[in-house]
Amino acid sequence: MVQPWEVEHVVELPPGEFRVFKEHLLEDYPFIAEHAQELHTDGHGIAHGMLVLCEGIDDGILVNSEGTSYARYAAYLSGARTLSLMNRYPSLHDFCVGMDNLVEKYVQQAVAGQEDGGFTLPYSNLDAEVERRVYDEDMVNFDRQLFLDMLSERPEFDEVETTQNEIYLTIAPEFVQEQTPGMSM
């Protein structure tokens, strides 16, 4: 069973101190001792812990000391800084989820609707979709450059080209679908 966590404190260490901490979790640390009474599992099974981050790195370590001054229970958490930001700023979380959903929709549409390994997305279609989603409150905001960057980072596309009126997506060879002769999508 996965145990739910609530991060009560975030501590950021310089790289050298973080490395020492990561390699010696069972040693006593003043930054854990300072909050030891708040780091425990409550009667509802929720672990109240600390997130220890390293300056300049996205990953971190979750710590539940159970009242001690060492990392009695610890878990390495990839992308911890980003997760912490998403938790701290719900509006950022909502923006990211909305952008991801929109990108996913157009990736699926491009792969399914490709012709000769390409797909054209008119900005007018994108703008109408964004306007509908913002109106329906499925999206809080939209950033066109971020949208293009996100498409460019997807493995389904070899290239993303833009003009004043459209986005042309070149489908990566492993995602190109053979079309039946005489049929077009």
Rank of each mutant, 00 (worst) to 15 (best):
L102M: 02
A71M: 02
I46W: 05
M50K: 04
A71F: 08
D94K: 07
V134E: 05
E66A: 05
R133W: 06
K105R: 08
V52N: 00
E131K: 06
T120C: 13
L92E: 13
A71T: 11
C54S: 08
I61G: 01
Y73W: 06
L77S: 08
T120M: 12
E34D: 04
E115S: 15
Y106E: 03
F31D: 05
T120N: 09
P90A: 09
L26F: 09
A75V: 01
N125A: 15
A36M: 00
G98R: 07
E115N: 14
V97E: 15
V52F: 00
C54L: 00
D136S: 09
L121P: 09
D136I: 02
M86A: 03
D58Q: 00
C96N: 13
E104S: 15
E23L: 09
E66C: 14
E34I: 11
R81K: 12
E38K: 06
P122W: 12
L26D: 11
A71E: 03
D127V: 12
D116K: 08
E104A: 11
Y29R: 13
K22F: 00
S78P: 06
L85Q: 11
N87V: 15
Y135L: 13
Q109L: 15
G43T: 01
H44A: 10
L62M: 12
I57H: 10
L77P: 15
M50L: 05
A33P: 11
A112Y: 14
E23R: 04
K105Y: 14
G45M: 05
Q114D: 00
A74G: 09
L39T: 09
L62C: 13
S91G: 11
A74S: 06
G60R: 00
G98S: 01
M99V: 01
G56Q: 01
A74W: 12
N125M: 15
S78N: 09
A36K: 05
N87L: 15
A110T: 07
V130Y: 02
G79K: 02
Y123H: 07
D136A: 11
D100V: 13
L62F: 14
T68V: 03
Y106S: 12
A75P: 10
F21K: 02
L62R: 11
L92D: 07
Q37F: 05
A75F: 01
T68E: 05
F31A: 09
C96W: 12
P122E: 08
I61L: 00
A112N: 04
G117H: 01
N125K: 13
L26W: 02
E23D: 03
V111Y: 02
C96S: 15
V107S: 07
H24D: 14
A74R: 08
H44Y: 09
A128Q: 07
S78E: 07
R72G: 05
Y106W: 14
A75M: 02
Y89H: 15
V111Q: 10
G67F: 01
D42H: 03
A33Q: 01
R72M: 06
L121W: 12
A112K: 10
E38T: 05
Y135K: 14
P30Y: 02
R133A: 06
T41D: 10
N125W: 12
A36Y: 03
E129W: 04
G79S: 00
D136C: 07
